[in-house]
Nucleic acid binder design. Structure first.
Lengths: 174, 174
DNA sequence: CCGCACATGTAATCGGTTACATGATTGA
DNA sequence: TCAATCATGTAACCGATTACATGTGCGG
């Protein structure tokens, strides 16, 4: 469902678009919240058209097809946003590594955490730059809350990695 | 790979076990970092045995099979922990909902965020209780870092939801 | 003796990845 | 004219979910 909802959301927020457009919009905006490739997007759009959530316009140049959201599509999206319970089982590779970390020697795991902290910091810088570069559209917060969430997330991860490394080194010496 | 590593980790930390045992250990410990069910665990153990990462002991009562990690299994786990780059594309349903939230009216989205904040708070209480109840095993931090990470994660989510709801309500009135 | 927890599996299906495959238009 | 970008798809495969399927041993 999530991919479907992401596509309906993009079609609502920035109007009719082709699969190609949507793939690019995905990369440039919703990417830090949900990831999908064109090989998944094209078939999904076809299914959505079959289900009456979008309509396909005339073919343009290079076989370009333009999709427009329907009333049914809007309704479904609204419904999903407002009523769906949000309980996916966790499946977080970073957390799993954290879980298993104490199987390594203290020096090895501390070093590893330092490296991870750096990588989180780098990604954090990327998102912060993205936010700074945003043209501050009047009123429309589309995407802004999620960007804020992503930034908080990475800050938290970076701090956790740093502090856990500190703790391991302290315990090791002490 | 992650499921495999989780199983190797559990076999390392608490010794030989059956698929049934591992399923229960999964539920009671690594669950908040990586989720798996018995229907995935049994076939995976069989493949791991075929790949020489674990050995299967004699069948016990009720057809019980006991798996033990091999040297090759330990090596693989170590290797994965120390060298593997951690770059999964994000796929976070909560973040996606956050992204799309501004498509709703301010009152609706603020109300929704309050509900989510409550649900994060409840899960947070669960993890904090779990940490408090831990028998403080001397030295072994197995699982503790990930628990800390999970707690920080939920705290961050709860705060984000609260503060974003505040912000939406302020913007709406102001 | 009966019900519960122990114990192991399989099959259909779904969502997602990787790689393959093809062709049109535009601008340098 | 040629390379880059636009543009759409398919097929094989993998990891995970849901539901089905079966049987055992132990304690009350």
């Amino acid at each position: 469902m999530s991919l479907r909802m992401a596509l309906l959301g993009l079609l609502t927020a920035s109007g009719p678009a082709s699969g190609y457009d949507l793939t690019k919009r995905f990369e440039s905006s919703v990417n830090h919240a949900w990831h999908a490739r064109h090989s998944q997007i094209y078939p999904e759009l076809a299914k959505m058209a079959a289900d009456g959530l979008v309509t396909v316009g005339e073919e343009g140049p290079r076989g370009r097809k333009t999709y427009t959201i329907t009333g049914e599509g809007s309704r479904l999206l609204r419904d999903w946003l407002m009523t769906k319970e949000n309980f996916r089982p966790v499946r977080d590779e970073g957390a799993l590594r954290a879980f298993l970390l104490p199987l390594l020697e203290p020096e090895a795991s501390a070093a590893l955490l330092r490296r991870e902290a750096e990588s989180y910091a780098a990604r954090l810088a990327g998102l912060e730059a993205l936010r700074a570069s945003k043209p501050r559209e009047q009123g429309s917060h589309f995407g802004a809350y999620a960007l804020d969430l992503g930034i908080r997330q990475l800050r938290m991860m970076r701090d956790w990695a740093e502090e856990t490394a500190d703790r391991i080194e302290r315990d090791d010496r002490g």
